[in-house]
């Protein structure tokens, strides 16, 4: 049962996933292009240049991971929604088992861009010589990439699995959290000046990206090359 699910998902997503795989493979190479010790400049200048230049590309890695996750999640449910769930209902499996198989198939497909990124990072690093004091972290970067893909995939997969009403509730709830916390924060600060330092919006954002928050994986150190 698992293999057909994986195959169907692959058929659905391949045209969109392949460009992502190519992008994941190429991004590390773009990040290190023109860098490395060539002996013509002082090592100290090399270090500064390598770190500052490679960091310019950093935001693209989590963005790409997020994109992969969204694409995999949306294509996972695409044909079910299109065909009115007839195929799924014809199978001799429970609903939860069907969803689990489908989700794990997406996770496995998420490994493709991750492996491409890992290979690309190793290849990119093989083309440059790092000066003493700098270290390359291709495997850490690949792991972060996979985790970020998994997070985005899980969130949108859960949304896709539910009804339109659930999706509206979740998206509406998130919007309400941001807008409401900002409004309530301002209102409270206006009446209780001692609470003016407490911003609901800051609190919500902090909770999302700090330790324990769902978006924590998208922050942190995404460096391919660091000290």
């Amino acid at each position: 049962m698992y293999q057909p699910m994986l195959f169907i998902h692959w058929k659905q997503v391949r045209h969109v996933l392949i460009p992502f795989v190519v992008a994941a493979f190429s991004l590390p190479m773009l990040a290190v292009q023109g860098l490395g010790t060539d002996g013509s400049r002082a090592v100290s200048v090399e270090i500064y240049q390598i770190v500052s230049s490679s960091q310019l590309w950093l935001p693209l890695f989590p963005a790409l991971a997020g994109g992969v996750g969204v694409v995999l999640a949306l294509t996972a449910w695409n044909w079910d929604h299109k065909l009115g769930h007839v195929y799924a209902l014809s199978l001799p499996v429970a609903r939860w088992e069907y969803a689990l198989l489908k989700m794990s198939a997406g996770v496995v497909l998420g490994l493709l861009p991750t492996i491409a990124l890992w290979l690309g990072a190793h290849l990119a690093l093989a083309t440059i010589t790092l000066p003493t004091g700098l270290t390359a972290y291709p495997s850490h970067l690949a792991l972060r990439f996979f985790l970020a893909t998994l997070m985005a995939y899980s969130f949108f997969f859960a949304l896709g699995a539910g009804t339109i009403r659930t999706t509206l509730w979740v998206v509406g709830g998130l919007l309400a959290l941001f807008v409401g916390s900002a409004l309530v924060g301002d209102l409270v600060a206006a009446y209780v000046p001692a609470l003016s330092e407490m911003s609901g919006l800051d609190l919500a954002t902090r909770w999302l990206v700090k330790v324990g928050g769902p978006l924590q994986v998208f922050t942190g150190n995404w460096s391919l090359i660091d000290v």
Binding site: D80, H81, H85, A88, L89, R95, W96, A99, L100, M103, H140, L143, R144, L147, A148, L150, M151, Y153, S154, F155, F157, A158, G160, A161, G162, T163, T166, V211, G212, G213, P214, Q216, V217, G220
Partner: peptide
């Protein structure tokens, strides 16, 4: 990184549970 990995896996698990419970059927 270990904390991040643990947190992400927990969130993914929680979201998977939502996906298994929620249905359009």
């Amino acid at each position: 990184l270990a904390t991040t990995a643990g947190t992400t896996l927990l969130w993914a698990l929680a979201l998977a549970l939502f996906a298994l419970r929620s249905t359009r059927w």
